[in-house]
Simulated scan of single mutants.
Amino acid sequence: MTESSSATGGEVDQQAQAELLRLRGSIDNIDAAIVHMLAERFKCTQEVGRLKAQYRLPPADPARERDQIQRLRDLAENARLDPAFAEKFLNFIIAEVIRHHERIAGA
């Protein structure tokens, strides 16, 4: 078997390995960007939570949440991302934001 042959017997083509490393590097960079964007988003939602607590507003805003879910589903569809996945992702974030708002209100 030559070095440029397909992966068999545990050997991986050097070009394929290089491409795999390049793609994984891109994935790692994207993951880092996602984490930083989420951190920035949560900084903003913490401020919202403080305002809600100050004005005795409820931690959850179902109308806003519905609008945001639909907006994210539309964005996902336009980006060729599964809208159901995008909705699950946003619901996870919304639940965390509400938890933060409840904690802030109770402080």
Rank of each mutant, 00 (worst) to 15 (best):
T2N: 09
S4R: 13
S5L: 10
S6H: 10
G10A: 14
G10T: 06
E11T: 09
V12Y: 06
D13V: 00
Q15W: 15
A16W: 03
Q17W: 14
A18V: 01
L20D: 12
L20I: 05
L21E: 15
R22L: 15
R22D: 13
G25Q: 07
G25S: 12
I27M: 03
D31K: 08
D31I: 14
A32M: 15
A33R: 12
V35G: 04
V35N: 08
M37V: 14
Q46G: 08
V48T: 14
R50G: 07
K52I: 06
A53F: 07
A53I: 04
P62C: 05
P62L: 04
R64F: 08
E65V: 13
E65Q: 13
D67R: 12
Q70S: 11
L72S: 02
D74M: 10
A76F: 03
E77L: 10
N78M: 12
A79K: 04
A79W: 14
A79S: 12
L81T: 11
A84T: 04
F89C: 00
I93T: 07
I94L: 11
A95R: 05
E96H: 08
V97P: 00
R99P: 01
R99T: 13
H101L: 05
H101D: 11
H101S: 08
E102D: 08
R103G: 07
R103E: 11
A107M: 06
